[in-house]
Design a protein around this nucleic acid. Structure first.
Lengths: 193, 193
DNA sequence: GTTAGCATGTAAGGAGTTACATGATTTT
DNA sequence: AAAATCATGTAACTCCTTACATGCTAAC
């Protein structure tokens, strides 16, 4: 019944869904999928992989030098998704959770949209938009209320509101595209500054 | 020589710089200053206040019902900035730290720009911009390299790049304004409340 | 021959959340 | 009389980072 911290787990399962990988490579790929500014630390990655291995979602294969890759530098451990891991992936992608959990996982889930049904995609996108809009109205009220505060605080809040508004528009475009069943191809929204 | 987690500390010191406050009120204000989506939990706030109190940066005054506010609901503990706390605030605002630390603290520092010198403000803004630009070029390379990947991953990366580009422009505007000495009306806002 | 990158791990510690515990006051 | 809000706190737990430990291979 773990509710938080499944983000890393989902990201690993999703990446191994594409192809087996060893930890070092996985870390680099995780940097793309997780929206985090920094690279995930090894102190976090390897224990997580062990845990997932024990849970039966992935398997560890020791790849000896020269057997797998053209130039293998040293012993590497290649992780591969199991069938149960695949089920776990699907469950994590489609299950609804608390708002905070869904917010934490949004980026990762989005990255794996290609392996998810359209109705699930729509639910995730609409849920995200609804939560952002809620946050937006609170922030706008706050902005209107705190006019007395100094310019910098106000500027920070104004910028925050604009960023969220921008993200809401982005989501709306994506939702519209999904509804139309149109395979979206990167239309650059007209920039208004 | 604590390097991380001074974010909360800085935010509290900055808010108490304006006026003394009790914990419950502080939490609401922190929600504005810290860029976090959720409210800070009490389980995090109160121990932090105790710690800062022991360090001598703030003092605790018990405000008995009826003595301070017009309608006091129950016993509240009002926290007030000490002189050493003020020094600590200045130090945290002006000290340069590791990149990750400066990134974590950027929002909070920006919110308190009104109580900081212009050269410090410029250093913080330019530092932030430099780090974002660095991240941007890496992300752009990644985006160009991974054209084979599916549409959603690409879309996510594209959106990420655009967001960062936008933030860089925002920072550039702010830097230009600071350089021009276009005083955004500083230091002490007109006394009200 | 030394530095940089590849590759895997452990131990200690930091900073936060959730759940629990208590109780007054205001609103419905 | 119940529910919401005000107000403060503790204990257990989670997840992550930093620092340490090891050792191979490629490039300069």
């Amino acid at each position: 019944m773990t509710r938080r911290g499944e983000t890393l787990e989902l990201a690993v399962l999703g990446l191994l869904h594409e192809q087996p990988m060893h930890g070092y490579e996985l870390r680099k790929q995780l940097n793309v999928v997780l929206g985090w500014g920094r690279l995930l630390s090894y102190g976090s990655l390897y224990p997580a992989l062990k845990k997932m291995s024990r849970a039966g979602w992935i398997t560890e294969h020791v790849a000896e030098p020269g057997t797998t890759a053209p130039v293998t530098r040293r012993q590497r451990i290649v992780y591969e998704l199991t069938e149960r891991g695949d089920q776990r992936f699907t469950s994590l992608m489609s299950d609804a959770g608390p708002a905070s959990w869904e917010d934490d996982n949004f980026d990762v889930r989005f990255a794996f949209f290609g392996r998810t049904d359209r109705d699930i995609r729509l639910r995730i996108l609409e849920g995200r938009r609804a939560r952002l809009q809620e946050r937006l109205s609170r922030a706008q009220q706050q902005l209107a209320a705190s006019r007395e505060r100094d310019t910098y605080t106000e500027e920070l809040q104004r910028h925050g509101v604009e960023s969220v508004e921008r993200e809401v528009r982005w989501l709306s475009d994506l939702i519209a595209a999904e509804r139309d069943g149109v395979r979206r191809q990167v239309t650059k929204p007209t920039e208004t500054t």
